[in-house]
Design a protein around this nucleic acid. Structure first.
Lengths: 357, 357
DNA sequence: TTGAAAGCGCTAACAT
DNA sequence: ATGTTAGCGCTTTCAA
């Protein structure tokens, strides 16, 4: 019996293989092969004919359908934390590399408010990865904000045999691939820079120990300073960042004797720290040298311009993208890959020789 | 005859409706209805049973398949220019609002290198929109970098009866929906701020006239100044920005009599402009007031902190997302919507009363 | 090199 | 409230 044609409200009447088939008199299968350019499976004449009709009709392949057929959606899920770290550059790196190979990223930020709303926090958290998985992404690039939550996500992803690459923050236990910065090297560069200027009484405002990169930066920095015969005072700033940071900065600057140099585990701390230093009438870098970590855009605009350790978020994104795509093709061995890009020292005006008195 | 099961390399053996159907003894259709929570079409008992099995099996819907069925992929394409304007905040606004309604953005930056590589520039440009269209996005949010290219994209999108919302840059002819900043109001705020401080001999470094927002900022600023009995020198900086900007700044600062205040059409110009002013031994704001437009993050970190006009990229993104989604549901009339968010004046330390002599 | 048939996993449309 | 059937637009499989 006659059924109504599917509505779908398509006045533009989507062009399908069937239409090309009818127009050209060739069977659908031939059209499909020609359009995909399957060499050796279709004669040149046929191919040209098909291509011509397709072009005339303005045909565009339906990747949704193709995806359910081939198992490849050509989309990569990207999970980012709610805070804006260096995510934008990272994302661009991911995107550019993916796009070069006909993949595209589906971005999903973790929303802080959602987790709070949910009665069971974990349910809310998994929503993010499920939204991606439901769209049948071929792989996932993940910048973990919280280690515990990350584990849940990884499990959920691996259950489906989909590759997952962690970026920026490494989680030892997870066994996932990782691309990030060589934080140890960065910390060493920072320490050596200060040491070479002559500093020996040094301090660091460290990030939370439980966060991988912060742990590395702290330990390597302290060790390097100590190995050179210096002393290093460590204060840790956690969350919430803002009231605590000012307080810690004050404590550090009232120490007697006061350190001659401070290593900030992140550039983010710099504006507040410099503000506090100003209230102590300290001139940077004359009275106190300050070095950061990240090389955020603002580092170069601060007063004074901040000496810091430059990370390479764009390149990290690129490498992460390459890695997932390789995994999608099953080109790599089963051992988890761990890639750490070398950071570099950027000397600006916030560091100099220690004051002499 | 027995066929091989589709490979697809699925050791995790994807869970499908059929499996739930078999496990529960209920027909697939009932399972489908239960899972979608179609109220009134399924008994509570059945629903509970289905949900339990689905949960146990770890079922997740396949949105690809659902999309070809319903015509809704629940994905919105987002096209961004290669330059990093305020895109990140905008993107987050778009994302958050979409995610709240189970949509997700598929982001595609236009790549500058691709266009150059392609023999026919237009082909390269259309690739971006095709990548999105091939994935059957339900709508597109577009931040146009180039007007001519944009027109081609719009045509391509509309051919498929898909809603398109332009953000930030408005293109009169296109007839597309638009969400952006009220540039006229911003320019007026800037002018009135300088006028109220007492400035009358004013200049502006304007952006390219052919770019909508820049045209608005320039004209309204000039008119407002003139209406108050002031004079306004206009210099336009195009592409490439960098060598030209320094030169124009020099010209402006050697004028006699020198303007007492300058309106920069974009915060981006500020670092270079301030650098040039410094070479002229001008103290900002004592000798010269400077006001920008955008309120980029760096504005607050500059020396001196820049007075500027704050835009609301996050909110613009949100509104754009709301608009596409409404269009996707066909909830709006056919007239193109034009939404301009009000910017606000942020007074910092780069503006003050004019020098008297 | 080409063709016919059988799905992919799901939902809309029509029964009952 | 629950079944049944026919697709969605494509690719894979198998046969010619």
């Amino acid at each position: 019996m006659a059924r109504k044609p599917r509505a779908s409200s398509a006045p533009g009447q989507r062009v399908t293989l069937k239409q090309i088939s009818e127009e050209s008199g060739l069977p659908i299968m031939t059209v499909s092969r020609a359009l995909r350019g399957l060499r050796g499976e279709v004669s040149e004449a046929t191919q040209r004919a098909v291509l011509a009709v397709a072009e005339r009709l303005g045909y565009r392949p339906n990747m949704l359908v193709r995806a359910i057929q081939t198992g490849h959606s050509m989309n990569i899920g990207v999970v980012l934390p709610p805070i804006a770290t260096f995510s934008y550059e990272l994302l661009r790196g991911v995107h550019d590399e993916l796009a070069r190979h006909d993949y595209l990223p589906i971005v999903h930020w973790q929303q802080s408010d959602k987790a709070i709303d949910a009665t069971d926090e974990r349910v809310g958290e998994l929503e993010v990865i499920h939204h991606l998985l439901d769209r049948r992404v071929d792989g996932v690039i993940f910048l973990p904000a919280d280690d515990l939550v990350f584990d849940l996500h990884v499990r959920e992803v691996w259950k489906r045999d989909i590759p997952l690459v962690a970026v920026d923050r490494y989680l030892r236990k997870s066994g996932a691939d990782f691309v990030g910065t060589d934080d140890a090297m960065g910390a060493r560069l920072a320490a050596e820079h200060l040491l070479s200027l002559g500093h020996r009484r040094i301090a660091t405002i460290a990030g939370e120990e439980r966060i991988g990169p912060f742990a590395d930066r702290r330990h390597v920095f302290v060790e390097t300073v100590k190995a050179a015969g210096g002393t290093c005072t460590v204060v840790e700033v956690g969350k919430p960042l803002m009231p605590r940071l000012g307080q810690l900065a004050s404590e550090l600057l009232t120490m007697k004797p006061r350190p001659t140099a401070v290593f900030l585990a992140a550039d983010h701390y710099a504006p507040e720290f410099l503000a506090v230093a100003r209230t102590f009438d300290l001139s940077i870098p004359r009275d106190l040298s300050v070095i950061g970590f990240a090389d955020l855009e603002m580092a170069s605009y601060m007063t004074p311009p901040l000496t810091t350790i430059r990370q390479h978020p764009y390149l990290i994104g690129q490498e992460a993208a390459r890695l997932v795509m390789r995994r999608c093709r099953g080109e790599t061995d089963t051992k988890p890959v761990e890639l750490r890009l070398k950071p570099e020292l950027v000397v600006r005006s916030s560091t100099t020789v220690p004051p002499k008195h």
